[in-house]
Simulated assay, not measured.
Amino acid sequence: MGTARTSTDEVAGERRQLINVAYRLLGSLAESEDAVQEAYARWYALPRSRRDEIVAPGAWLTTVTGRICLDVLGSARARRERYVGAWLPDPLPTRAEWDNGPGTDPADQLVLDESVTMAFLVVLESMTPAERVAFVLHDVFRYPFAEIAGILDRTPAACKQLAASARRRVREARAPVTGAGQADAVRQVKEAWETKNIAALVDLLDPAAVMTADGGGMVGTVLRPVEGGARIAQYMVAIADKAPGLELVERSVNGSPGLVARRGGAVLTVASFEVADGRVTRIWVVRNPEKLRPWGREDRED
């Protein structure tokens, strides 16, 4: 009985790691939760004798989760072609900034680091499913290519090539500014947005900046990226004019400085930023209510 309890605890303890792997592979909290639940369902569907033979349950669960995510990624592109407007990864609050139930939300399990910034996740979206799996598992989680080969059904050498190709995509993307530099830029954007200062916004935005919004067809937003600092500034001010009573607050989004727009305590919009050479180069705006569930309500005093 003691061995069985230890095994059960060990298996249950893998959930946090699996959620972190799945979110980086899928960019969706709901899909990540489904993938991990499916992996556990397959584990418990095994005969007890088969489970006892598995020396490393965590490795088994990771392999199964990886395969499930690979299948999801393969079908996601077709689904996203039918998605209304642009599709963006789910934005993540820090643990202190969400309140959606005691330890039940997958957001509570996630480790926020450079591998979950919106800029990084958007680069991951440009990869093929096989590239993404090979790169995330090897470069982020340090799994050996011999294990990744079992997930992708390819040779370790082929998996190594996939990871190298993915790595080139990451290098080609502009490296964003993090920490104080990004926080300062986001704070200035907030102040200029609140005062509807178009000139100040234009000065803060790179002339070639791009803003992408995700409403999922559930709320109003632009369906195509807004390109150019001047156009983005005009759009932001127009939104401010149409949304009286909207409050902007600085919040960590996927571990980096961002902005949250709320009304009456309800979070309506979460914005992520990429900053380079002192100017904002990319803005990702998530308004799809289904993707904002972990943010709950923000009724506390700031």
Rank of each mutant, 00 (worst) to 15 (best):
L18F: 11
F135C: 01
R82G: 13
F135I: 01
R80Y: 02
L61I: 10
R231K: 10
T178D: 11
R95A: 14
D90F: 07
A230T: 14
P156D: 06
E125K: 10
R77P: 08
F141I: 07
E172D: 10
P129F: 09
D139C: 00
S115N: 11
V222D: 12
L162D: 00
R287K: 13
G150W: 04
P257K: 04
Q234T: 10
E33C: 06
A157G: 12
A56D: 07
A192P: 01
L124Q: 06
R300A: 10
Q182N: 03
N254K: 06
V84N: 12
E81A: 15
L18S: 05
E247N: 09
K160W: 00
G101W: 13
V186D: 00
R5A: 11
V270M: 10
R263T: 14
Q182Y: 00
R42Q: 08
P156A: 10
F120N: 09
W87P: 14
L137N: 04
N20T: 01
E247G: 03
T117Y: 08
P102V: 14
A107H: 02
A185M: 08
A163H: 01
R224E: 15
G278S: 06
L61K: 03
L18K: 05
V202N: 00
T3A: 11
I68K: 11
R132Y: 09
D299Q: 00
T195P: 06
P106G: 08
D90V: 10
E147R: 01
A45P: 02
E247Y: 04
Q161W: 05
T221E: 05
A180V: 13
N197L: 07
E191T: 04
L268G: 05
V222H: 13
D9I: 06
A208D: 14
W284C: 02
R263P: 06
D90S: 11
E301K: 15
E81I: 15
L110I: 12
V133H: 00
V222Q: 12
A183P: 02
R174D: 13
R169S: 07
A22Q: 02
A199V: 13
E298P: 04
D184N: 13
R77T: 08
D302W: 13
A213N: 06
A266N: 15
E191C: 01
V11G: 09
M211A: 13
Q182W: 01
A41R: 00
I232H: 05
L268C: 03
A200K: 08
A243G: 03
Y44A: 08
L292M: 09
P47F: 05
V285Q: 14
G2P: 08
M236L: 15
I239W: 11
M218W: 10
V123M: 10
A146Q: 15
D203P: 01
V226K: 04
A183L: 09
A86K: 05
L201K: 03
P225D: 12
